[in-house]
Design a protein around this nucleic acid. Structure first.
Lengths: 218, 218
DNA sequence: GACTGTGAAAGGGTTCACAGCT
DNA sequence: AGCTGTGAACCCTTTCACAGTC
């Protein structure tokens, strides 16, 4: 299939074709009227715009289950990411191979960063260690951090942080699950599970505990 | 601190206080004018609305590094999620304790689901096994699925699927990193790394390969 | 005096609809 | 005839601003 129309792509992605065309138009005029978009050319242009054609060395700090899972994750290499080093604070981990690569000790963090020209760091440590690791990464020159630890990191201006909370997606599912189950039943059940704190002081009886809360938009 | 103002919460969350008040207002009038929001009461109301006061049994299928990381993840329990079972297809894994819980074999999947009243399943298997696991989960009565495998799952109407792609967040960071580095330099580097496919056929020279693409909005 | 709750204004993103090109 | 690229219309979300309440 050498070319695709915006209509076909939109159907596949589940969006409106006009939106897709407008989005593409921000990248340039890469389509051909009356024909569509050349697939190979479009893929290249989008890849380039997203930075997928570049090589991004990253370090993963904290090689527990999650760190190891990330190190083994196949999706990284195919999108231009190269795991430059695995770093852990546990001396017992040092030298152990994970995903075919020896784990290095935190002591060498700064050296590793500068020698590999790393600008993106992944933190998969326990919450307690995260801020400290973050500070060292930033001091060593890292300007983008992906944080899997359940803490909010504070960083200086100019450094990007993205936090991944593995339980948030579950929460979203549970929220919809609750809706599926039906509002009344769910509220009654919730009320039975937890003894709700009584409304403090002045109780204007605007939203008593058993009430059905106002429906959130869409 | 028994009460908070929308201003304080907004500052902490990094959003506008009017937005915060309007959002809260969809849940009901839980604040007190001149005073603010009662912290305990507000937490309870939000928890209830999000379904955090309910008990959600979940199963995790695929106990590799990622599955184990999820099983050990502390954030689940505190948000009402209870890991009801860990399931893996590898007979060698069966019975092994992970996060203080014996791994069970895939053969018993249907039994586990129905006995525990599980409605949410987490798939952390390799891509190849994901759809098959998904089908079995759905057939057994699961109506929400959190998918960590790098595949698009197809499910019948009425079943929710959320896909977590661990590399997407990295990609977003890389995209901003590329911007920080400066448009020209990045494009030049990209062009050097990959030989771009030539523009097919009619080349109207609207966006030649070295061109700076139109800037995307914000 | 302080702070919520909300109508109205502003802003941003999406969709329509069609001119323009192949 | 077919499909892109895009101005204009539309709609939804955010912010302003203030009346209402404690």
């Amino acid at each position: 299939m050498p070319t695709v129309s915006s209509e076909e792509l939109a159907a596949a992605a589940g969006v409106n074709s006009a939106k897709l065309r407008k989005d593409f138009s921000y990248l340039g005029s890469y389509g051909t009227r009356g024909v569509g978009y050349d697939v190979e050319y479009l893929v290249y242009q989008i890849s380039r715009e997203l930075g997928l054609t570049q090589d991004w060395p990253v370090v993963i700090v904290g090689i527990g289950n999650l760190g190891a899972a990330l190190a083994n994750y196949g999706g990284f290499a195919s999108r231009g990411f190269r795991v430059a080093a695995l770093i852990d604070a546990d001396p017992a981990m040092a030298g152990k191979p994970v995903a075919g690569m020896p784990v290095q000790h935190t002591d060498d963090l700064e050296k590793i960063i500068s020698e590999n020209g790393v600008s993106i760091g992944v933190i998969a440590t326990p919450a307690g260690a995260a801020q400290q690791v973050c500070d060292r990464l930033v001091a060593a020159g890292v300007t983008s951090i992906l944080n899997f630890a359940p803490t909010v990191l504070s960083v200086p201006e100019g450094v990007d942080v993205r936090k991944v909370d593995l339980s948030i997606e579950l929460q979203i599912l549970a929220f919809h699950e609750q809706r599926k189950a039906g509002e009344e039943a769910a509220v009654a059940e919730a009320a039975a599970v937890v003894v709700p704190p009584v409304r403090p002081a002045a109780n204007g009886r605007k939203g008593p505990d058993g009430d059905m809360p106002a429906v959130m938009p869409a």
